[in-house]
């Protein structure tokens, strides 16, 4: 077992955890956080795989892809949270559950 194996496996676990959270958690901010975890998991897999090169420095192309991915993730998060806030001010709900009463703590 090498260093990159650990991070690749951890990334896969993180991606699976994010998937579970995205589907199971009902609070919309939890869903945004879970989507972020999915992204981080994939980034770990990518950078882990970039370290398989025989040279000590990792492959620069996955690094650049992950940098791009981080900026796209923050754009996604900001848009997601803006929609959550707008949804909240329209409906008073923090989940997609139609039975939730406005103002009810979850």
């Amino acid at each position: 077992m090498t260093t990159y194996d650990v991070y690749v496996a951890g990334g896969a676990v993180l991606f699976a955890l994010g998937t579970y959270g995205l589907l199971e958690r009902s609070h919309l901010v939890h869903k945004v956080i879970a989507a972020n975890f999915m992204g981080s998991g994939i980034f770990l897999v990518l950078i882990g795989l970039a370290n398989r090169t025989p040279t000590p420095e990792p492959d620069p192309v996955p690094q650049a892809m992950v940098l791009t991915g981080i900026v796209v993730t923050v754009a996604m998060t900001a848009l997601g949270l803006a929609i959550v806030k707008r949804y909240f001010s329209e409906t008073g709900r923090t989940t997609l559950d139609a039975d939730e009463k406005p103002g009810e703590r979850r």
Partner: peptide
Amino acid sequence: AWIRLSSPDVAMAEAAIG
């Protein structure tokens, strides 16, 4: 983790943005 994977560029972006 990014530092351990020798990607300082990613580490900086993660710390500031992430």
